[in-house]
Design a protein around this nucleic acid. Structure first.
Lengths: 152, 152
DNA sequence: CTCGCTATTGCAAGTTGTCGCAGGAACGCC
DNA sequence: GGCGTTCCTGCGACAACTTGCAATAGCGAG
């Protein structure tokens, strides 16, 4: 009864079970499904999207379970969330590298800025204000070259 | 030196009616109420809060009307919105000065960064990537001196 | 002052998340 | 292999918005 496990990237998804148990948390079919879906995902995914994909595998998937699992997974560092342009939840799968976000207010596209470039921009806040910047929580809105400043 | 809180008031709220008409939009009792409530507000306010305050004046206030009015007002530049830590709508009343936001992931406090300081940080993206930064859509997350990097 | 055009409103239904609860299910232990 | 402890799940209710529609009411025109 092993479902066609997605040929996920060689990432610590396999360690998830152990990570959960190590914290006294449990490994359940539900969580396993969510992990599997997540393993086959790259980049961003919204909560609603994840719920839908899970439902594709198991129609009995309940939203609240998904959201709660996502919370746990974030706690463990497997995903990280932020909010999209419309304020909706958006999860970053396997935040391997710290990065900031550049979001085009015109087309909605999101570009990631590497750690170094981002730090060069906002890292200074650490010394000037004693503020410890968390790159994955840096969101810079504006207009990309393609969209250009919008005229209303 | 951080300038004291700007004496927000004596602002072009009075021009609102004209601004609306100039665009072929209408001046309605509902909008007037919302403008009035907004005029008595400083800083941030969430959509839900605004709805509630309006209801305090007129129990018949309907949420959708408030939200739609807020959209119009934003179009006219009277307010600006962003999303709070929980992704909920948050409106900045009378964004007199463009500013970016620094949000503490620990205590949730939000500090505004003046136009100049903010531009010094991210303005460079304009030349390096052809990206036009919109300061009010710049959100930098991290930990303030008081909270310090959280250990999780 | 009346009329007509169309922006707005009020309402209802739909999304996306969150929360509290009670039964069910993992896990570790004996 | 049983048992008990606790974590989870499923579910319904709720909060915060959003959107479509038909009826209403600003506003300028005549």
């Amino acid at each position: 009864m092993s479902a066609p496990v997605a040929p996920a990237r060689a990432l610590p998804w396999d360690t998830a079970r152990g990570a959960l148990r190590a914290r006294g948390l449990r490994w359940t079919p539900q969580r396993r499904l969510i992990l599997e879906v997540l393993a086959g995902t790259t980049g961003h995914i919204t909560g609603a999207e994840l719920v839908e994909r899970c439902r594709a595998h198991d129609a009995a998937t309940i939203p609240s379970t998904v959201y709660r699992t996502l919370d746990v997974l974030e706690d463990l560092g497997y995903v990280r969330h932020s909010h999209g342009a419309d304020g909706r939840e958006e999860y970053h799968v396997l935040p391997g590298a710290e990065h900031a976000h550049l979001r085009c207010l015109g087309c909605g596209s999101v570009v990631e800025i590497g750690r170094d470039e981002a730090l060069a921009l906002v890292g200074g806040l650490g010394s000037s204000r004693g503020f410890t910047v968390v790159l994955s929580h840096v969101m810079i809105g504006g207009y990309c070259p393609g969209c250009g400043p919008e005229v209303s």
